[in-house]
């Protein structure tokens, strides 16, 4: 399993980095200690997403722009919508739990088969 750093750009990763920066600025943590926490976050989030969730979705949209560089795909989809196959058409699940459509979505994807770090 790859151990990518790209999940540092998620909400969870960004809030952790904000926390670490704040603690470093207060003198509560050193850069080295913060680096260890971030590395642990990389390992933990990669593992959690790989092993602990079982959620399949289908999405569609119009591919507006794409880029493939250093084994990383960057895709921009317009009129992005998600269909959740786990939820039937007639169920009564509150709409708040569904993924809303979006005018524009950027997808950043690393190679899922590569063992190297991004």
């Amino acid at each position: 399993m790859a151990n990518y750093q790209l999940y540092r750009n998620t909400t969870l990763g960004v809030t952790l980095q904000d926390t670490l920066e704040e603690m470093i600025s207060q003198g509560a943590l050193t850069d080295q200690a913060a680096g260890k926490v971030l590395s642990e976050f990389d390992r933990s989030i990669n593992l959690a997403l790989d092993k602990r969730i079982n959620k399949k979705i289908q999405f569609s949209g119009k591919l507006s722009t794409y880029r493939f560089c250093d084994n990383v795909w960057t895709l921009v989809l317009k009129d992005f919508s998600v269909k959740d196959p786990n939820q039937s058409q007639h169920n009564t699940t509150a709409p708040t739990s569904q993924i809303p459509p979006a005018d524009k979505v950027k997808i950043v994807a690393c190679d899922g088969k590569s063992a190297t770090q991004a």
Binding site: V105, K106, I107, V108, A109, C110, D111, G112, K113
Partner: peptide, 15 residues
């Protein structure tokens, strides 16, 4: 072109 607030961070199996 790449500027948007809606971001998906993931890994690809096949494109």
């Amino acid at each position: 072109l790449f500027d948007t607030d809606n971001v998906v961070v993931c890994q690809y199996d096949k494109i």
